[in-house]
Structure formats: structure tokens, C-alpha cells
């Protein structure tokens, strides 16, 4: 079973600070991490391989530094990693990104399943994977919280989708693209042997030329979305400590909350 895992490198949004260049990846823009949702992507792909055999290829679109995210993927245990990177691709919106990814997926070749995270924590559009599926013309099963049955011989996948007020069980033919939510599994911590293997690995980098893409068809120029990012305004906070025993404190708290019209 050949699986492609879509991985993005994002800033660590838990550590956003004024020192950072907005949400963009910049050399001094704070720590960069594997998009947290994609940790579940990788775990899903690895578990599927462990059950059914085959190989997992991690695919990442981003600047050259994004190779670090692929190193993490390799350390976790993926078989191969490909970085798609080209200065012309900078500032692609989700549709342009999807076009690039589709070209790369076609170049990788045979696949049975593509896995992605529900969204990337930087752009948070949750659109790229959807657009990849549409461009490839394969079924999309999004927000997967559980892979109930993945059957390579029958060429079907049955998955439970986590919706706002329900769980929906869907069966799709393969190949398909699924996006996963964090309820699906517990991502593994890379073993040292994995880290060493990853450190030795040579990650191929594909640019527009390798993918047969016209540079004018990707990047900011080919994108409908224009990025303008700013940090959220600092909120004025006022801290008030309430003294007294639990009952008195609770009473005072309720009074204060009602005064402030919070409740």
C-alpha cells in the first residue's frame, strides 16, 4: 500500500511574539515545527503501513528550511520524503499550492491513499487538501477521527468523520484523500534510531522545472489570496484576586461576574 502524507512546516503558534515576522516563516521568526495536525497525518500513515505493508512518502511544500519538518517525518519512520521548494512558489495560496502538490503527487506516481491534517495552524484555511483531492479527481473524506477499515484488496476505506454534532461513517473507494483530526491517534515520539536515520537521509528537492510547472502559474502572482498578517492586538487585562474561603470566594466571584455582565 503506497501512502502519501502531506506535511507542512509552520511557526509554533504557541510561541508567537512581536519579534516574529507575522505568521510568515522567516529565519529569525521563532521556532518552526511540523504542523501539529500533520503529526496525526504521519501517525495515521505509519499505522496504515504497519498494518498493510507498503511505503509512506512524506511530501512537503515550503522554503528550504522546511526540510526540517521532513526530517521529523523521517525520524518518525516514513520511508521517503520529498521537499517541493522553489522561490517562484513563495506566497502561493491554497489553490496554487494544491496545483503544485498535485504535480508532485503525479511525479511520485502510484498511490492508494493520501493523508493530510485537518488544517495547517498558520493559514488555517483547511482548503489545500480539499483542492488537491478535487484536482486529482479522487474522493475526499475529511475530519477523520477513526479509520474503521482500510482494505487494500477490496480497495476501499471506511472512516468515521468527526462533525460538529455527529459522527458520520463513510466508505470510499481507493485511491482517496483523507484529512485527520487529533482524535484519530497519538503521534509517536521519534526514536533515536529514527533521528539518526533522518539525519543521514538526503531529501530530494523538486522545483518548478522538476515538476514541469510554469513558474508564472504558481506563487503570489497566480494566487487570488493576498496575505497580510498582523499579530492580534494586546488585550488590556485586569487581574483581581478574590480572598476568603471557597464558599465566600465563589459568592464574590459570582457577584463580580454578574456585575461585569459576564453571566
Amino acid at each position: 500500500m503506497n501512502i502519501i502524507a502531506l506535511v507542512k512546516q509552520t511557526p509554533d503558534t504557541a510561541q508567537l511574539s512581536a519579534a516574529m515576522d507575522g505568521l510568515m516563516l522567516s529565519a529569525d521568526g521563532g521556532p518552526r515545527i511540523v504542523n501539529p495536525w500533520d503529526e496525526y497525518t504521519l501517525e495515521t500513515a505509519l499505522q496504515a503501513r504497519e498494518e498493510h505493508g507498503g511505503k509512506v512518502t512524506a511530501l512537503c511544500l515550503g522554503p528550504p528550511e522546511a526540510a526540517d519538518a521532513l526530517k521529523t517525518a523521517l525520524a518518525m519512520g516514513v520511508d521517503e520524503a520529498v521537499l517541493v521548494s522553489d522561490p517562484a512558489m513563495a506566497d502561493s495560496d491554497s489553490l496554487a499550492s494544491a496545483r503544485i502538490l498535485v504535480a508532485a503527487i503525479r511525479k511520485i506516481g502510484d498511490f492508494d491513499l493520501i493523508v493530510g491534517g485537518r488544517a495547517a495552524i498558520d493559514g488555517n484555511t483547511a482548503a489545500t487538501a480539499v483542492q488537491v483531492a478535487a484536482l486529482l479527481g479522487i474522493p475526499l473524506v475529511s475530519y477523520v477521527a477513526k479509520l474503521r477499515n482500510l482494505d487494500p484488496s477490496d480497495r476501499t476505506v471506511t472512516a468515521v468523520r468527526l462533525l460538529e454534532k455527529a459522527r458520520e461513517t463513510v466508505t470510499s473507494r481507493l485511491p482517496a484523500l483523507i484529512t485527520v483530526v487529533k482524535e484519530i491517534n497519538e503521534p509517536r515520539y521519534p526514536s533515536l534510531i529514527g533521528i539518526r536515520k533522518a539525519a543521514r537521509a538526503d531529501i530530494p528537492v523538486w522545483g518548478c522545472e522538476d515538476l514541469g510547472l510554469d513558474p508564472s502559474g504558481v506563487g503570489a502572482g497566480a494566487s487570488g489570496v493576498v496575505w497580510r498578517t498582523e499579530l492580534p492586538p494586546v488585550r488590556e487585562a485586569h487581574i483581581e484576586m478574590i480572598d476568603g474561603g471557597p464558599e465566600d470566594a465563589a459568592r464574590t466571584l459570582v457577584d463580580r461576574l454578574m456585575e461585569e455582565k459576564v453571566i
Binding site: 497519538e186 509517536r188 515520539y189 526514536s191 533515536l192 534510531i193 529514527g194
Partner: peptide
């Protein structure tokens, strides 16, 4: 368990 097997109590992952 940690370096070879990557099998340890899940809560430690957060600390790591």
C-alpha cells in the same frame, strides 16, 4: 524504551 522503542508514558511527550 525511549531511544530505541519510543514507548513511554504519553504524558512525558509533552514535557519532552
Amino acid at each position: 524504551q525511549v531511544l530505541m522503542e519510543s514507548a513511554f508514558p504519553n504524558e512525558l511527550k509533552g514535557a519532552f
